[in-house]
Amino acid sequence: MEQAAVDQLVALLDLEDIELNLFRGLSPEIDQQRVFGGQVAGQALVAAARTVDEDRSVHSLHAYFLRPGDPRVPILYEVDRQRDGRSFTTRRVVAIQHGRPIFNLSASFHRPEGGFEHQFEMPAGLPDPDDLEDFATRWAPYKDRLGDWYTRPRPIDTRYVDWAPPDRADPLPPRHKVWVRANGVLPDQPVLHDCVLAYLSDMTLLDTTLLPHGGTFMNQRVQMASLDHAMWFHRPFRADEWLLYDQDTPSASDGRGLARGFFFTQAGDLAVSVVQEGLIRRLEG
C-alpha cells in the first residue's frame, strides 16, 4: 500500500472554493508535459458535485478533452447549474487555463429509486488480484527506460490479468482485463469514490486500442491523447477495494480508436461502464 500517495490524490481532488460556482484545482509537482486527463475529469466531477444536494449521486458524465492541460498553473472549474429537477440534477463544468477552455464535462445526478435490474455477467475464472504482479514487479525489466515514471509514488494499484509486454511486436486480441483500486484507504464519502474512479478510468483504457496493431508507445511512433470520455454509474462500489476493469476496443479508424470498459466489484456487480475515444495517430519518420 502507498497510503501517502492516496492521501495526496484525495488532496488533489479537494478543490479550492473561489466564488459561487467557481473552483480551483492544482496539479501534482511531478515532471510531466501535460495534465493527466483523469485528473481533469476527477476534479471537474468534484466541482459539479459540490453544487448538488448530498441525497443525489452521479449516474452519468460526458466529457471532451479540448486542449492539453498545463501542469505548471492552476485549473479553474466553472460550474453551470443547468437543471434541478425532482429526480435529476444536471451540471456543466468548463475547465479553464490561460483564458481558454481545456475540458468540458456534463454530469447528471439522480436520487436513489427502485426499478428493473439486469447486468452483464462478470468474466469467470480470473486470478485473484493479490496473486498478480504489482506495478513495480511488472515494470522492473523496463525501469531504466522509464526514469522517474517508474519510481514516482502511485496512488492507484493496477494488476494486469492479460499482461502484454510493452515492447511486443505481434498483434493481440482486442481486449484485456486489469484489476484496479486505490493503493490505500479512502474516506467513506461515496462521491469521493466516484471521483477517484473517474480519475483512474483514464488509465490503461486507450492503450487497449493499440492491442490489435502489434506495437505500443515504447516501440513505435504514435501520438495518443484522450478525445472524449463517458461514464455511467450503475451500482455502489468502493474505489479502495478491487475492481475488475474489463476493456475492449470495437474499432479504430481515421487516426482514432474507440475503447470500452466495465468495472465489476469482486462480488460480481457491474458498477460502472466507460466509453472513450482517443487519438492514436501514427507518426511518420
Rank of each mutant, 00 (worst) to 15 (best):
P173N: 12
D84T: 09
D202S: 06
V185Q: 15
V196W: 08
L126A: 04
C195P: 00
P112D: 10
E113Y: 03
H118V: 02
D248W: 05
D162L: 06
V161P: 11
A41R: 06
L61S: 02
P141Y: 08
L258E: 04
Y64T: 07
V93A: 06
V161I: 14
D148L: 12
E19F: 03
R221M: 12
L15F: 03
M203Y: 12
L15M: 08
M1C: 06
G184P: 03
E2F: 00
A271W: 04
I30V: 15
N21T: 07
Y64S: 10
I75R: 10
R138L: 14
R175S: 15
L172S: 03
M1Q: 10
Q97D: 04
D246T: 03
D167F: 01
N183V: 00
D167S: 05
A44W: 03
I18W: 10
R81Y: 03
M231N: 05
V79C: 11
D14H: 10
V178W: 11
L12K: 08
R72Y: 00
D248R: 09
A182Q: 10
E133G: 04
F116S: 13
P127E: 13
V52I: 15
A107H: 06
H229G: 00
F135G: 00
P187C: 04
H176F: 11
A47D: 01
I18F: 04
A239D: 07
D228I: 07
D130N: 14
G255W: 12
D70P: 08
D134I: 00
Y160H: 15
E133C: 02
L258A: 06
P123S: 03
P173F: 06
T208M: 09
L22E: 14
D55V: 10
M122I: 01
R83D: 03
P127S: 11
Q39A: 01
D144P: 00
R24H: 04
L211C: 01
Q33Y: 03
M203A: 05
L172N: 10
V222D: 01
V40P: 05
Q33F: 03
H118A: 08
N104I: 00
F262I: 11
P236A: 10
E2Y: 02
V180I: 15
F263N: 02
R91E: 03
F237M: 09
V274P: 02
Q97H: 09
G99L: 08
L61C: 09
P187E: 08
W149C: 01
G85T: 02
F217M: 15
F36V: 04
T89V: 14
L26H: 12
D84C: 01
H193T: 07
A182K: 12
R154F: 02
A49D: 13
D148H: 13
P68M: 11
F109A: 01
A164P: 00
S273Y: 04
